[in-house]
Structure formats: structure tokens, C-alpha cells
């Protein structure tokens, strides 16, 4: 009875399944394959057979081949990976905690609640590149940030013009935190909104201090949403790319040889695009697989931790 009309369901699903296979499944498999091919030619598909060398090269294990230093393959292990980890592990925890605090406070106020909610959600509908450019202006040497804090003529975002890696990272993390907030606040707010008023009433009857209600009752009740947000934020953090373009793109036009602000995804794009006409899809593929493995490991760890602490 249940199986009789199965083919119909498959038929209806066919268009989307074909697209998913063509543009998601196949590229994933292909990426795995390419990452193991030596000197892969993106146009003809020609290669020199199976190798682990691509991984060895981008991770700095295998010695560099003399004469191909312009591929800058070492930038992966030297800049892209450390930067990505730094961005993720600094900005994600701060952003999640900040979003939680804001959501809980937002949930408590009655007056102007809707207005504040809109304000907090506005960044979500703004183009990230545009936000990045605004940030770049705010943090330029004559920008708002210097003016507000009276810091004088500090250049924060233009590496070629006096900024340093540290300053750029500071602005970058700030940017990632800020742009990440609205979606998190939206999810947390709706989760908080769905908590049964009876839990608050029960806590009140039991003379629970407000902070204790938030910490011991409210947080555990929205723990599934916290887990969801944490995992997706980590994944987004690992994939950070837009921010670099929006914030620092100009510095590359001034000094195209400085790559210390690379992230993993930026590195991958650069390898695909190629420098000086040489494209290295095999390095890009290897970088993508490394990123995949990192994300997988962290997600599994989070799921494991969640088993004990998340209450559905």
C-alpha cells in the first residue's frame, strides 16, 4: 500500500534531485578526486595521476618545488588556516553570548520591544559587502572610530597605509561579530518567546532570583536553539570570505603580495582564479577538503558535548 506509488514521488522530486546531484553532490565528489590529482589541468582535465602531494604542499609538509613559489601554496598553512581558526574561535563565542544577552534583555522589555527588534534585525537585510565598505570607512584614518575614541590618525584597515595584521584582525572580528548578531538574536528571541509563561510563573512562585531564572531555567529551555546557532555559526565562521573583500580589498590593490589576511575560503578562490595565469584547482580542492574535515570534526565534538547539555 505504502510503496505502490513510490515512482510518482520520485518523479516529482526528479527536477530538484537532478540539480542537487549536478551542482552539489557531483562537485563534492569531484573535489575529493581533484584534490588527489597531480598537476591537474582545469581545462583539459589532464593530470599526472594520484598523489598526496597537494595536501603535503598546502599543509607545508612536503618541500616546496623550486620555481613555483609564485603559487604561494604555503599561504594556506601560514595565513589562511590560522586566520580562519582565530576568526572563528574569537568571534563565534563572543557573538553567541552577546546575542543571548541581548535576546534575554529584549525579551524582558515591553515598551518599544518591536522597535528594538527591528533595529537589531536590520543588519541581516543589509548586503555584507556594503556593510564591509561602511566598516572600512568607519575604521579609516579619518573615520568615526578614531574620532569617537580620540585615537588620532590611526589607519585600521589599509595594510599598505600603516595598518598592521593585528589591527585588521581586530576590525575583522568586530565585523564578524556584528554581522552575525541579527540572525542569532532572531532565533533566540523566537525561542524565548515560545517558552511557556508557566515556567516563569513557577519560578516566581518559588522566589527564584531573576538571574537564576535566566541561567537555570531559561537557558536550558532554549538549549536546542543555542546548539543550532553555535554549530551553524562555527560553520559560517570557518567559511568567512565576504568580510575580507568588503573590509580590505583595497589593500590588495595597493600591495598584491601581502596575503597575511587570507582565510581558507579566500585562499581557495584565489587558487581557482589563479595568479599570473596559473590556476591550481588541485590545491583549491585540497584546501576545501581540509576545511571540510575541520568543520566535520568540530561539529561532531559539539554534538557530543550537546548530548549531555542540550534538553529537547
Amino acid at each position: 500500500m505504502e510503496r505502490k506509488n513510490n515512482y510518482k514521488a520520485w518523479l516529482y522530486l526528479a527536477p530538484i534531485l537532478i540539480f542537487i546531484f549536478l551542482f552539489t553532490i557531483f562537485p563534492i565528489i569531484n573535489t575529493f578526486i581533484i584534490s588527489f590529482l597531480k598537476n591537474y589541468n582545469y581545462a583539459t582535465g589532464a593530470n599526472e595521476g594520484f598523489t598526496f602531494e597537494n595536501y603535503g604542499l598546502i599543509l607545508g609538509i612536503t618541500e616546496r618545488i623550486p620555481g613555483v613559489s609564485e603559487s604561494k601554496m604555503l599561504d594556506f598553512i601560514r595565513y589562511a588556516l590560522p586566520n580562519t581558526l582565530l576568526i572563528t574561535f574569537v568571534s563565534v563565542p563572543i557573538s553567541v553570548i552577546l546575542a543571548l544577552v541581548i535576546s534575554i534583555l529584549l525579551n524582558k522589555i515591553k515598551v518599544l520591544h518591536d522597535l528594538f527588534q527591528t533595529i537589531f534585525f536590520l543588519p541581516y537585510v543589509t548586503n555584507t559587502i556594503a556593510v564591509g565598505m561602511v566598516f572600512a570607512i568607519i575604521f579609516s584614518n579619518t573615520g568615526l572610530f578614531n574620532n569617537i575614541f580620540g585615537l588620532g590618525n590611526v589607519n585600521w584597515v589599509q595594510e599598505g597605509l600603516g595598518s598592521t595584521w593585528g589591527k585588521c584582525m581586530f576590525v575583522l572580528c568586530l565585523y564578524v561579530i556584528w554581522t552575525g548578531l541579527p540572525f542569532k538574536i532572531l532565533i533566540f528571541s523566537s525561542a524565548l518567546h515560545n517558552i511557556d509563561q508557566q515556567y516563569y510563573d513557577a519560578a516566581r512562585i518559588d522566589a527564584t532570583p531573576k538571574w537564576k531564572t535566566d541561567l537555570k531555567i531559561v537557558l536550558p529551555l532554549i538549549s536546542p536553539q543555542i546548539l543550532y546557532i553555535t554549530i551553524t555559526s562555527f560553520i559560517t565562521g570557518f567559511k568567512e570570505y565576504n568580510a575580507i573583500i568588503g573590509l580590505f580589498n583595497r589593500s590588495y590593490t595597493i600591495n598584491p603580495n601581502v596575503h597575511d589576511l587570507y582565510t581558507v575560503v579566500y585562499y581557495i578562490y584565489d587558487q581557482i582564479q589563479g595568479t599570473n595565469g596559473t590556476r591550481h584547482l588541485e590545491y583549491a580542492a585540497a584546501g576545501a577538503v581540509v576545511l571540510f574535515v575541520i568543520i566535520l570534526i568540530f561539529t561532531l565534538i559539539q554534538m557530543k558535548v550537546a548530548k549531555k547539555r542540550v534538553h529537547y
Partner: peptide
């Protein structure tokens, strides 16, 4: 409410789902 010293049993019980029975009773 918190100063009245009353015990209230809610229609849906409002037991804290993430706490054991022991912790639920201990909470007040």
C-alpha cells in the same frame, strides 16, 4: 508573588523538563 509563601500546582504542571524529579523538587 515570591513573598507570599504559597505553593502552586499549574494545570500543565510546569515541571522544568531539563531537571530530574529530585532537582525539580529541590529548586524552590
Amino acid at each position: 508573588a515570591e513573598k507570599r509563601g504559597i505553593g502552586l500546582v499549574f494545570q500543565n504542571y510546569a515541571l522544568y523538563p531539563h531537571m530530574t524529579v529530585y532537582k525539580n523538587i529541590a529548586f524552590p
